[in-house]
Lab assay of single mutants.
Amino acid sequence: MATADDFKLIRDIHSTGGRRQVFGSREQKPFEDLVDLGWLKRSSVDSRATHYQITERGTSAAL
């Protein structure tokens, strides 16, 4: 179930172009929650960072 923080984060991601790069596993937790909701997808993972991209469902949630 989505929380107020989830909606705040997806709106922030949407307003800044729909993509986010995250460093460190602790910082990934809120983004992984949005992946579980179907609002974000992991577009790539490298040794230092994970890249996320907003989905259509995420765009709808952000509006």
Rank of each mutant, 00 (worst) to 15 (best):
M1S: 12
M1V: 13
M1N: 12
A2D: 03
A2R: 04
A4M: 11
A4G: 08
A4H: 10
D5P: 06
D6W: 06
D6M: 12
D6S: 08
F7P: 01
K8I: 12
K8R: 13
K8A: 13
L9Y: 03
L9H: 03
R11H: 07
R11W: 13
D12P: 00
I13Q: 01
I13D: 00
I13Y: 00
S15P: 01
S15F: 11
T16N: 11
G17K: 05
G18V: 02
G18F: 02
R19F: 14
R19T: 14
R19E: 13
R20M: 08
R20L: 08
R20I: 13
F23S: 14
G24I: 07
G24K: 09
G24A: 09
G24T: 08
R26Q: 15
E27G: 10
Q28G: 05
Q28R: 11
Q28A: 09
P30V: 07
P30R: 10
F31V: 02
F31G: 00
F31E: 02
E32P: 01
E32M: 12
D33P: 05
L34N: 01
D36P: 03
D36L: 15
D36H: 13
L37S: 02
L37E: 02
G38N: 04
W39R: 00
K41Y: 15
K41M: 14
R42K: 14
R42H: 07
S43E: 15
S44A: 13
V45F: 11
V45Y: 10
V45E: 09
V45C: 10
V45K: 10
D46L: 06
D46W: 03
D46I: 06
T50L: 06
T50W: 08
T50A: 11
H51P: 02
H51T: 15
H51I: 15
Y52A: 01
Y52D: 01
Y52I: 01
Y52H: 01
Q53C: 09
Q53S: 10
I54R: 00
I54Q: 02
I54H: 01
E56A: 12
R57S: 13
G58I: 00
G58S: 00
S60M: 14
A62L: 04
A62R: 02
A62T: 03
L63F: 06
